[in-house]
Design a protein around this nucleic acid. Structure first.
Lengths: 225, 225
DNA sequence: GTCTATATAGGGATAGAC
DNA sequence: GTCTATCCCTATATAGAC
């Protein structure tokens, strides 16, 4: 039963972090939810930070998978869509991390270093993809434009969920969108992911050839709020 | 001395929030720093949240000022630079808010509503400016492109400081940039602001006419990392 | 207005029995 | 492995004297 409990702790912790935000979830809450004692929890993990670290390790593995590029050929737009989906779904599954990114990273040097490395690898991936698209003639951009656009792709992707959460309330009335379910945490919803992907694609739209640019803008129409 | 103490509490709180992050600053810390008793602090403010609300109100006033558009004429690129400077400086002065944005807003409905409204106003301002640039012939973009680009301008601006903080560590070595001063909070530094402004400008660069586009890209060169 | 003292609560974490 | 019991510490907030 040991292995199973440790695993359950990780699963439930992740779910609770995502639902309520990591700073708002205590070890007691986790133990409660699992119907185990706090002491038992501390048998499996030194402390709460240790739980976060274990979850983060899985996140890193998952994200590295998502960042893999098509091998041995130049990328096309389809590849970009697919990769963005993988990345956004990974971010979604570990959204607690993005919700309180600075706070979480500032309390843990190791996490901070690892996250910085992930960003570096992501930056490489983006640059490679954009460079590949340019080489394949799908987009037309200077290397400086690619660099700057890549950085913006990284930023928009990283903070899309937060932006989406804060931007959820569009109308003037507070009531308009407050009819969200359960946990008054105003977390973004899964449907926001697709919109985020379009928002990223629109960053590179200006560099597309006319035909693709028009096509993309047409697709994006459907996701106007 | 009453007025002065209340004012000093607000000033010191803001400084400490910015330096250490709002969640890491307690009412006791603030009282300590001011050399007053915790009881005294609670004479002036009902609770910590109340302090945050007062500071937020000033932030909102300041940001509204920064969002004002040139009156009675079409905007030009100079106006955009100026406005971005005002906005980024406002964000800098109240950076604690952006550091833990979701966490802070999720604990206070009023703040959340107000921040959403500020974003709405900012969105209008951005759309107006971009529309004005288009009308003046400075940029060339469809209204859909303006809308999408405007949203990205908002996002990049809102989260630039966070991105900058997390991205500060570029090299592989953890030591490389860890020689930052004092408070191991990895807050961004003021010089990052200028870079953020360029990063935003590069969002609209693709829509500029060739001459200005080249000019902007040349300027931006200086801010490559 | 300001202080001292204190109430209350909750979270992190450990010891030791089972 | 798991539980019970508990300790320590810190944060918020209040009461009442000065």
């Amino acid at each position: 039963m040991a292995r199973q409990t440790k695993e359950r702790i990780l699963e439930v912790s992740l779910a609770m972090f995502n639902a309520r935000g990591e700073p708002n979830v205590t070890t007691n809450h986790i133990a409660d939810e699992l119907d185990i004692s706090p002491g038992n929890l501390y048998y499996h993990f030194r402390n709460k930070e240790n739980i976060v670290e274990h979850i983060f390790a899985r996140y890193e593995t998952r994200m590295d998978q998502a960042l893999l590029l098509p091998d041995g050929r130049l990328p096309n737009l389809e590849d970009v869509w697919l990769q963005l989906h993988l990345v956004f779904e990974c971010m979604w599954d570990y959204r607690f991390l993005y919700r309180d990114l600075i706070d979480i990273l500032s309390r843990n040097r190791k996490l901070k270093v690892h996250f910085a490395r992930i960003l570096n690898r992501a930056a490489s991936a983006v640059t490679d993809v954009l460079g590949g698209l340019a080489k394949a003639g799908v987009i037309r951009a200077t290397s400086d434009e690619i660099r700057a656009t890549g950085e913006n792709v990284l930023l928009v992707t990283t903070f899309w969920l937060n932006f989406s959460a804060v931007r959820a309330m569009r109308g003037e009335s507070a009531r308009t969108t407050s009819a969200r379910a359960g946990d008054a945490q105003s977390m973004p919803e899964q449907e926001d992911l697709t919109q985020g992907i379009y928002q990223v694609m629109l960053l590179i739209a200006p560099f597309l050839r006319d035909a693709e640019r028009l096509h993309l803008n047409t697709l994006a129409q459907a996701y106007k709020r």
